[in-house]
């Protein structure tokens, strides 16, 4: 029997959730017995090579590329899991919500206290660059998400217990301490 396939990605996140994932320590050896990885920064596979069973999404959607990747994940994964506060509610990047984009860009590239050397007053406009969305969207407001793991980052135990439950199809029993929003 082939192993369940996992894919992971970081959208508008800080990779902290992936770090927390690695925090399962030596259980990673057990994990590699249980599952196989596909598109993920962990094995550096850039494109889906097959359909996956579980997709772990870190970070919300702050630009067109995030939306594209998220939709790609929805297409290729049977189960999508929002991992961390950014994926669930936008998190730190969502603090720009409510502030007009022109103001954000002006602060970052024109008027901010750390701006130097941009004499021509150019805002990044290369057609290759993804376009910023009007606000940062939680993943479940863009595609259907099946499960949510809160935390900043979610505790390694929470990620581990969830993955084991999904792979073994056992009921998930979570101790009180494991689910925290910070």
């Amino acid at each position: 029997m082939s192993k369940p396939v996992i894919a992971t990605t970081s959208l508008a996140g800080c990779f902290g959730c992936h770090m927390s994932f690695l925090d399962i320590d030596d259980r990673i050896l057990e994990l590699i017995e249980l599952v196989e990885f596909n598109k993920s920064p962990i094995d550096d596979i850039k494109k889906f090579t097959k359909k996956c069973d579980i997709g772990l999404i870190e970070g919300g959607c702050c630009n067109s590329e995030n939306v594209h990747v998220l939709k790609d994940f929805r297409e290729h994964c049977k189960i999508l899991v929002s991992v961390g506060e950014c994926a669930i509610m936008g998190g730190l990047p969502a603090m720009r919500n409510g502030i007009p984009i022109s103001e954000c860009l002006a602060e970052a590239y024109l008027n901010g206290p750390t701006v130097s050397g941009n004499e021509e007053k150019i805002l990044p406009n290369d057609p290759e660059l993804p376009i910023l969305t009007d606000k940062v969207y939680p993943c479940h407001e863009v595609v259907k998400i099946d499960y949510f793991l809160p935390g900043c980052p979610p505790k390694a135990d929470l990620i581990w217990l969830t993955l084991v439950a999904l792979v073994t199809e056992d009921e998930l029993q979570l101790p009180y301490e494991v689910v925290k929003f910070d």
């Binding site: 730190l92 979570l174 689910v179 910070d182």
Partner: peptide, 25 residues
């Protein structure tokens, strides 16, 4: 934004969400 809040861990709204096992609104 719980991760950046000084009251996190001592917040009653958050504590109720924990008690009710709210993963996402």
């Amino acid at each position: 934004f719980c991760p950046g809040c000084e009251k996190s861990g001592n917040c009653e709204l958050q504590a109720l969400a924990y008690r009710f096992r709210i993963m996402v609104p």
